[in-house]
Design a binder for these strands. Structure first.
Length: 893
DNA sequence: GCTACTCGGGG
DNA sequence: GTGTACGAGTAGC
């Protein structure tokens, strides 16, 4: 028979003392297969001057475990040199390789590739990638261990196919008997409910709730926890999901379920095989669960990686991303609801909703596209792309490419090696990119052109052929490039480096995909292409970091330093050239970008000049190095190195689009109240977009006044922090803990506990700050006075002051003490000497309002500070710009 | 500016 | 499982 499947998971098992690789995948119709292959044995390489003796030692020590040994010719991975003879040792049991490796380690010069997981050894040798497609020919195989159609492979061929098979997803959420004042623990507290949500209807249902007692209604009643867990296993087996998801499933639900199963002596076979039981690995607070043939996706972890929020409770995240909230149940109520026949349904629908939300985060936001694309580019399995970091992806590509070109890959460094590396690093140092010293201030006259090197580090690596395999470690009569830091690399005409070669493939791959993406009309396919080009980019950019990563297989400080030294050299030369040959001022630059002042406000003109300069400079650069005209800052506020904000204009297919861009200026921080965040955003907006520093000053003054008069809603002043341990175990004095202790004192029957989030405000008094923290409710109830001084001087002013300082506005002035604050200032009238002309000129269009100071609805005359996103008022009227005594049509460009 | 330590999410 | 492992943010030097 012959099938084409997309690879979901790979593992191996032992059969008759030989490994049998099992590839799990799905065909286009969604049918699951397991492909078994026995055509590879584990192997690794040894560098030694006495292979005969080593061979004898291995055979006498490990006997039949050594399948064969042979002398092969390979290139060594570090340093340019010819092929040398290595001893290739082939064994039988993958899990015994570490023992062999450690036994022989001190008797030989070096060992290579003796720490490659066997599934990846197989995949790399057969060019199989995670989530890639293969065509399999072979015979059906009957087994009593594998739970899907099994094929004994005769041949496995990787095939090109961009499709992704629809994945069947199961989301689960457990509820646990929750004692007061203690976190549930799996050895004592049973699971009472398991909610399941299905991405494809299962037996006609979208979701189910298993309940460990008999209850009427739309639930699956069980007589015990044990029966409920058995039912869970049945459902997983029949529904047969590819993906199991849940919110924080990695650190709570999965380990808990597994520990309960262990506790109750149930067999933990949740995967697509019966012989391998699920196990959890715990390292510190992190746990990782592996289920053969399926993939565990933690939607919490994904959301945390992909989105930036102040906190990541399921409720907050779902509200923002899905527009839905959790059912309103506090964990403290769980026991009560569970015991109460009339209330248990609240708990049931709460659990049901949680599982639905966890599922929707995956099915609606489709975050897996990117991860699947990363699998296909790197070759790594989906589970490992989700759990692992950058290094596993890089290493998989390296192994594949090294082997193809006849190189062996080094082992991961051991403890001693890492110590050696860090000592060398201390001595030699590792330098990063060049950051040009900025002159802080607001640049609003004319424009700021931003030019940057397109993928600077990958381009440097390709252009100068930088790679451990091209590094010259001794004098040889070959052509080479010498980096500004002194390291030498043979030219690509002598030998193309492996990393430069991989990078060329990634970068060419990306531009091909991007071209296809621009032509693609179908939004679904477009999204997949976008994920793919993104994966190429991520991978390309990760190589530089890997070269300087101390735990890298191919770590070499000279390689890492060569890359950045070229970067510093290039950015400096470029800045000099723009200054000297074009007579333009360089305002700032960081690693791969320069910001150039240009005396015009005409976007199209600036675009044209900038593009020309970038092209001329590119023409003078060697290799694939390319300076790109990136965007225009219509106004640009720089506070210091790496801290700036700008009103950026970018041209896409001839159309300008604009946005505020901020780097290093934080407006959102956990320990700032909303008042600070909102004021910061408004102030930056006024300065950057409206160019109106005076208005921003007045705005801050107004806010200060509002704080003084206690007109600011308490909610805007509150900061929320969590209790992370028992209240007694805090050494220091923290405001939210003090507030929590007071809550406990006032209502001992319902004390706040670990995990609770406390929102507090600071009230007046002469105790230390933390002691003056109170909850909003209490402040309202007792009509306490907030500490206005604290909110002005400790919350609002510090970040605001940093911005105004570079504009020459002092703290006193913001407080209304310095310059006289006239009525007209407060009314928002402009002070001419500090106002910047931000009127916009556009070549093709002409509707312009000079200095719009505000916006107004043409229908109901409602005032707006900014033009609304839709360009319309709530009443439906069009938004016009107002300023300098007239009202005109505003054109968003 | 750097490194060491903390803590998240779940019930 | 040919394992040894998160990451952002803050405190403290």
């Amino acid at each position: 028979m012959k099938v084409q499947i997309q690879v979901l998971d790979v593992d191996y098992d032992m059969l008759n003392n030989r490994p049998i690789v099992r590839i799990f995948g799905k065909d286009r119709n969604g049918k699951t297969y397991c492909v078994c292959a026995t055509d590879l044995l584990p192997y690794f390489y040894i560098k030694t001057t006495n292979p005969k003796r080593i061979e004898e030692e291995l055979r006498s020590r490990f006997g039949g475990e050594i399948e064969k040994t042979e002398i092969v010719e390979r290139y060594l991975p570090i340093g340019y040199s010819d092929k040398i003879e290595l001893l290739k040792v082939t064994t039988r049991t993958p899990s015994k390789v570490p023992e062999i490796r450690d036994y022989i380690k001190d008797k030989v010069d070096d060992i290579y590739e003796a720490d490659i997981l066997f599934k990846y050894r197989y995949m790399v040798d057969r060019s199989i990638t995670g989530m890639g497609w293969i065509e399999v020919e072979g015979n059906p195989l009957r087994t009593d261990t594998i739970r899907c159609a099994t094929i004994e492979a005769r041949s496995i061929t990787p095939i090109e196919n961009d499709e992704n098979v629809p994945l069947r997803i199961l989301a689960l959420d457990i509820e646990v008997k929750t004692p007061q004042e203690r976190i549930p623990s799996a050895d004592k507290d049973p699971i009472i409910m398991i909610a399941l949500a299905y991405s494809e209807p299962f037996r006609g249902r979208e979701n189910d709730v298993l309940v460990a007692k008999s209850v009427p209604g739309d639930v699956i009643s069980c007589t015990s926890e044990e029966e409920m867990l058995e039912k869970l296993k049945d459902i997983i087996e029949s529904y047969d999901p590819d993906i199991i998801t849940g919110y924080n499933i990695n650190n709570f639900d999965m380990p808990y379920i597994i520990q309960r199963m262990q506790h109750l002596n149930l067999k933990r076979d949740l995967g697509r095989v019966v012989d391998k039981t699920v196990f959890c690995q715990t390292f510190g607070p992190q746990t990782k669960t592996n289920i053969t043939g399926r993939v565990i996706v933690d939607s919490y972890r994904i959301v945390k990686k992909e989105y930036s929020f102040k906190n990541y409770t399921l409720n907050t995240v779902a509200k923002d991303l899905l527009g839905e909230e959790k059912e309103d149940v506090s964990y403290k109520e769980i026991n009560g609801l569970w015991e109460d026949r009339n209330e248990i349904h609240r708990l049931i629908s709460y659990a049901r909703k949680d599982s639905i939300l966890a599922l929707k985060l995956i099915t609606e936001k489709k975050p897996l596209d990117k991860y699947i694309a990363l699998c296909r580019v790197s070759g790594v399995l989906l589970q490992d792309v989700l759990d692992g970091g950058e290094s596993i992806r890089i290493e998989n590509l390296l192994l594949s490419e090294f082997n193809k070109k006849g190189f062996v890959l080094p082992l991961k460094p051991g403890r001693e090696e890492i110590i050696k590396r860090s000592k060398e690093r201390e001595k030699e140092g590792i330098k990063g990119g060049l950051v040009l010293e900025p002159n802080p201030g607001l640049y609003a006259d004319g424009c700021v052109m931003v030019m940057d090197f397109k993928s600077l580090y990958p381009s440097i690596i390709r252009t100068f052929n930088i790679c451990p395999t091209t590094l010259l470690t001794r004098d040889l009569d070959v052509e080479y490039n010498e980096s500004p830091a002194g390291a030498r690399f043979v030219k690509s005409s002598v030998r193309e480096g492996i990393i430069p070669r991989i990078l060329s493939g990634l970068i060419d791959g990306r531009s091909t995909v991007k071209k296809r993406m621009y032509q693609e009309k179908d939004p679904e396919k477009r999204r997949l292409l976008d994920a793919k080009q993104y994966a190429f980019k991520i991978m390309a950019n990760a190589f530089y970091g890997y070269c300087g990563y101390m735990k890298a297989r191919t770590y070499n400080i000279h390689v890492a330093n060569a890359i950045t030294s070229y970067g510093r050299h290039l950015i400096q030369k470029t800045a000099d050239k723009i200054r000297n040959e074009y007579g333009l001022e360089i305002i700032y630059g960081d690693t791969d970008s320069v910001m150039v002042k240009y005396p015009s406000k005409n976007l199209d003109e600036v675009y044209e000049v900038g593009t020309r300069i970038a092209k001329e400079i590119t023409d003078s650069l060697p290799g694939v190095l390319e300076l790109e005209f990136e965007k225009i800052f219509r106004s640009f506020l720089i506070l210091a190195k790496k801290r700036y904000a700008g009103w950026a204009f970018e041209k896409h297919n001839g159309e300008w689009s604009d946005k505020i861009e901020m780097k290093g200026i934080e407006t959102v921080r956990r320990d700032w109240c909303d008042l600070v965040t909102n004021t910061m955003n408004a102030v930056i907006d006024m300065i950057i977009k409206e160019g109106d520093v005076n208005r921003a000053i007045s705005f801050v003054q107004e806010k200060i006044e509002q704080i003084r008069k206690r007109e600011v809603p308490l909610k805007e002043l509150s900061v929320t922090k969590s209790i992370t341990k028992s209240l007694e175990s805090y050494d220091g004095v923290l405001p939210h803990i003090e507030a929590a202790k007071k809550m406990r004192m006032r209502d001992p029957s319902n004390p706040p506990t670990r995990g609770d989030r406390i929102s507090f405000v600071i009230v007046e008094g002469n105790q230390m700050l933390s002691k003056r923290a109170e909850t909003i409710e209490y402040v309202k109830e007792k009509n306490l006075k907030t500490d206005t001084d604290y909110y002005i001087n400790n919350q609002l002013l510090p970040p605001i002051e940093r911005i105004f300082a570079v504009l020459g506005v002092s703290r006193d002035e913001l407080l209304g003490k310095g310059r006289q604050t006239s009525l007209s200032d407060i009314m928002g009238n402009r002070r001419p000497e500090r106002n910047h002309d931000l009127s916009i000129e556009m070549s093709p269009r002409e509707v312009v309002v000079k200095n719009p100071t505000g916006f107004i609805c043409s229908e109901c005359n409602r005032d707006f500070r900014r033009v609304t996103l839709t360009g319309r008022c709530e009443c439906g009227g069009e938004i016009y710009a107002s300023g300098q005594g007239f009202i005109g049509k505003y054109v968003e460009i």
